[in-house]
């Protein structure tokens, strides 16, 4: 099991940028945990224990002025938790408390060199998603629908493939540290839904335009070396992914919130040369294709030249205009964007 403790300053920086999303999720954990505690308190106790609890809740002002036992007798008791279900509720409660103890490390995963990026992200989300699994377990147990065969283990891992529409809206953000050589983000499309935010912090040499392949009409995609650009991810309405890459990689932002045309794809830096060497399992062709794909999209939107700025020198020069197939693809994506009304 790799250690999921942030070491890279860029990773902690990314967590800070995503602070609001982390806090929202943390708040949801707190709210759920408190609600569950109330449920357990209200539903499980004997009359005697309830009176004890009432005494505690009424506080010192009641001493001498209120007859606690009489008062407790008038309290509405919650729906009792069935004895057989109590252990599930308690397990769920423990899960939530243990997640709270993680603090911000709950929103961080480290991908060991050579390991699969998609698997690591699934693991990270599945871990934070245990909160959803715990909440579902509670509801299932209370409504008598809990089935060990189907639902057992949801408090241990609850992968995003099981998340409901609402849960995806509450999705925990994730910061992922990964080697450039393992930057194969294609599989991450599976998780980019609802309000999911993912930031990849790339170590070492990286393929120049890995995230370009994720550009679809409704997805915010950012590839940058400047942590300040991550703000767009935090503020995005909808799913978003970003990668912090080396200075010599492509730097761009695809922003679905921008009006259909202008500003949708801003390419800030494009390497002057196409990749020459394979990187990990990524061939030269694969790396080049991603870069050409980005150029084609930019050209298709007619934006690459005027929108390109080169903070790091001569980056303004853009590879040759893309082939007509890419033009068509870009045009198609653009049309989709307009029709979907997501722009």
């Amino acid at each position: 099991m790799p250690s999921d403790m942030t070491t890279d300053e860029r990773a902690s920086g990314a967590l800070r940028v995503l602070e609001k999303a982390c806090e929202d999720y943390h708040s949801a954990l707190v709210a759920t945990s408190e609600e569950l505690r109330s449920l357990l308190d209200a539903g499980s106790a004997t009359a005697e224990a309830r009176a004890g609890r009432t005494a505690a809740e009424l506080g010192a002002f009641a001493v001498g002025h209120i007859d606690i036992e009489k008062f407790a007798a008038f309290e509405r008791t919650g729906e009792p938790v069935a004895v057989t279900e109590a252990p599930r509720l308690e397990a769920a409660s423990r899960t939530l408390l243990s997640l709270l103890e993680h603090g911000n490390d709950l929103y961080y995963v480290n991908v060991d060199p050579g390991a699969d990026l998609r698997d690591a992200v699934a693991r990270g989300l599945g871990r934070a998603g245990r909160a959803f699994g715990a909440a579902r377990t509670v509801e299932l147990a209370r409504s008598g629908k809990y089935d060990e065969a189907t639902h057992g283990g949801w408090t241990d891992s609850f992968p995003p493939t099981l998340w409901s529409r609402r849960e995806k809206q509450l999705a925990p953000p994730l910061v992922v540290e990964v080697d450039g050589a393992d930057l194969r983000p294609g599989g991450l499309a599976d998780f980019l839904d609802g309000e999911q935010k993912i930031v990849l912090v790339v170590r070492g040499v990286a393929p120049p335009a890995a995230l370009a392949r994720l550009i679809t009409p409704g997805l915010l995609v950012v590839q940058t070396e400047n942590p300040a650009d991550l703000g767009a991810v935090a503020e995005a309405a909808g799913p978003a992914i970003a990668a912090l890459v080396p200075a010599d990689a492509c730097h761009f932002t695809h922003s679905p919130a921008a009006d259909g045309g202008r500003g949708r794809l801003v390419v800030r830096h494009m390497p002057t040369e196409e990749p020459k060497r394979p990187l990990g399992s990524l061939s030269v062709f694969q790396q080049t294709e991603a870069m050409r794909h980005l150029a084609a999209l930019a050209a298709g939107w007619g934006l690459s030249a005027p929108e390109t700025t080169a903070p790091s020198g001569d980056g303004a020069s853009v590879p040759a205009p893309a082939a007509s197939a890419a033009d068509n693809l870009a045009a198609w994506i653009l049309r989709q964007a307009d029709i979907s009304g997501m722009g």
Partner: peptide, 14 residues
């Protein structure tokens, strides 16, 4: 849900 988005939702939420 109560207050800021508790995660407890009815099972037939979809």
């Amino acid at each position: 849900s109560l207050s800021c988005s508790s995660l407890l939702t009815p099972v037939d939420e979809d």
